[in-house]
Amino acid sequence: MRAGELIEAFWRTANARDWDGFGRLLHDEVIYEVPQTRERLRGRANYVEFNQTYPGNWTATVTELFDQGAKGMSVVDFRVDDAAETGISLFEMRDGLIARITDWWPTPYDPPQRKTDKIERY
C-alpha cells in the first residue's frame, strides 16, 4: 500500500474511532513526535491510547495529501469542540505500515491534559 492510501485510511479510522482498524495501519514500533510541544510516543499500543484519550469532540478533514511512495504528508483541518487548527503530518512507512509520524501545528499551544501516561517529554 502506498503512503497516500495508508494516510487516507489513518484519518478515516481515526475520525470513525475505529481503534482496531487504526492500530492495524501502524508498525509495532511506530514513533510519534510533536516537535513544538516536545511530546513523543513509542509503540502501536501507546499511540492508539494517545489518540483514544485525546480530549473533546474532534475531527480531522484532509485538505491536502502528498504521496511519495514510502513517505507522505497530510494537511488537515483539525476541529475540537469550537476550536479549529491546521495540522501538518509527515509520515514514513516501513514494511507496508506507518512507522513514524511527525505532527506540526502552526499555532503555538500547550498540550492538553491527558488520561494517559505513555507520553515522553524530550
Rank of each mutant, 00 (worst) to 15 (best):
A14L: 11
A14P: 03
A14I: 03
N15Y: 00
N15D: 15
A16H: 03
A16N: 06
A16Y: 02
A16Q: 08
A16S: 06
R17G: 12
R17I: 12
R17F: 08
D18V: 05
D18F: 06
W19Y: 09
W19C: 03
D20Q: 09
G21W: 12
G21K: 07
G21I: 11
G21E: 07
F22Q: 01
F22R: 01
G23T: 08
G23K: 07
G23C: 14
G23L: 07
R24I: 14
R24M: 09
R24N: 15
L25W: 03
L25M: 05
L25T: 01
L25N: 01
L26M: 08
L26W: 09
H27S: 07
H27V: 05
H27K: 05
H27C: 07
D28R: 06
E29T: 13
E29H: 05
V30R: 00
V30T: 03
V30F: 02
I31F: 00
I31C: 02
E33A: 02
E33G: 00
E33C: 01
E33M: 05
E33V: 04
V34M: 12
V34F: 09
V34C: 08
V34R: 12
V34H: 07
V34Y: 06
P35S: 15
P35C: 14
P35H: 10
P35M: 06
Q36V: 12
Q36G: 15
Q36R: 09
Q36I: 11
Q36P: 00
T37I: 14
T37Y: 12
T37K: 07
T37H: 02
T37S: 05
T37G: 11
R38K: 04
R38W: 11
R38Q: 14
R38V: 01
R38I: 04
R38N: 12
E39V: 05
E39P: 02
E39W: 14
R40C: 02
R40L: 11
R40H: 15
L41S: 03
L41P: 01
R42E: 11
R42S: 03
R42W: 04
R42H: 07
R42K: 07
G43A: 10
G43D: 10
G43H: 02
R44V: 05
R44L: 14
R44I: 13
A45T: 15
A45F: 05
A45R: 13
A45K: 04
A45S: 13
A45H: 05
N46V: 02
N46Y: 01
N46C: 12
N46E: 10
Y47H: 15
Y47I: 04
V48D: 01
V48T: 01
V48Q: 00
E49A: 03
E49R: 08
E49S: 03
E49P: 00
F50K: 00
F50C: 00
F50D: 00
F50E: 00
F50I: 00
F50L: 07
N51S: 09
Q52A: 12
Q52D: 04
Q52S: 14
T53E: 14
T53R: 05
T53H: 05
Y54D: 06
Y54W: 10
Y54M: 10
Y54R: 10
Y54T: 11
Y54K: 04
P55F: 11
G56C: 07
G56A: 10
G56W: 09
G56I: 13
G56F: 11
N57I: 15
N57D: 15
N57S: 07
W58F: 08
W58D: 13
T59N: 15
T59F: 06
A60V: 02
A60N: 09
